[in-house]
Computed example of a mutant assay.
Amino acid sequence: MSGFSPPQLFSTTTKPTLTSANAISDSGEESSWVSVADLMAALMMVFLCISVAMMRSVMVEREKIRTIAMSYKENQLAIYESLTEEFGHDLPRWGAFIDRETLTIAFNQSDTMFETGKAQLSTAYQDVFTEFFPRYMKVLSPYTDSIEALRIEGHTNSQWGTSDNVGDSYFNNLRLSQERARSVLKFVYSLSAMDNHHQWMMHNIAAVGYSSSRLILNDDGSENSEQSKRVAFRVITNSETKIHSILEESF
């Protein structure tokens, strides 16, 4: 039996075991996850930068709007104080008042200004507006860069003769209020003191009739029929236009 070697049942050649294959696979997957994590981190940084930039832009635009709002408030107060200083002593004899919030000077004695249902300005109020309007334009002249428009507004109460039809009363008063506003504008435009202001007036002053849509109310909420009939001169500043411009530029 010497020299006999038993057959080898198992090969001694080393082959990759299952553990080794798993290790290689795990290493590849780990490498892939690292790459994905790096990509996600980079994307997060990009989104963060975009968010910061957008927040900064919003803050800048908000600051612009705040600055305009503050400027508007200061300008509004300056115009109101200038009008009050110029006309404070005259308003009672004219039957007029100044609204601080809307920068409106309203003349309430409509029955003295016009005949019932008519739009022809009375002689008495031709004298009033001959005195008032040139001074009004002079007071506003330092603020023209911040004025978007001036409106001469016609207002009525809700009544119209003996008509019980609300719609008929509204439209009849609408026509009347428009005609009265135009009548006042035409008169002040014709004043010799306004000869050098015609171009500005044509570009910036409008006559508007509101019928009974903006009634003056008593403390109990009822309609004040006499004060609702009025002609008003209103200053409209350009702050709203500037804010709209900023918002349009932001989008």
Rank of each mutant, 00 (worst) to 15 (best):
A106G: 12
S192I: 03
F4S: 10
L191E: 04
A23W: 06
Y189P: 01
A96V: 03
S212M: 02
T112H: 10
T237Y: 01
K138L: 07
F114A: 05
R151G: 09
S158D: 15
T19Q: 14
N204L: 04
A124S: 11
F133A: 09
I79Y: 08
G209Q: 01
Y72R: 14
D195H: 11
R100Y: 12
H203W: 06
A193D: 09
R62Y: 08
L121G: 12
N173W: 01
E86G: 05
R100M: 15
G161Y: 03
W94H: 10
S51A: 15
R93F: 06
P7G: 09
Y72Q: 11
K138Y: 03
L217A: 02
F132Q: 00
D26C: 07
S35G: 15
M201F: 07
T123R: 10
K15M: 13
V235F: 02
I236C: 11
G3H: 13
H198I: 13
H203I: 00
I152R: 02
E29Y: 14
S169M: 02
N165K: 07
I147N: 08
K118S: 10
L83E: 07
Q109Y: 05
S110C: 09
S35I: 10
D26F: 00
E148C: 13
T116E: 15
K64A: 03
N238H: 02
I65C: 07
P7R: 15
D164N: 15
H198Y: 06
A232K: 01
Q178L: 04
S245T: 10
N238P: 05
Q178T: 14
D164L: 11
K138W: 01
E115Y: 06
N108C: 15
K64E: 05
V34H: 10
A37T: 12
T104S: 10
A42D: 09
R230Q: 10
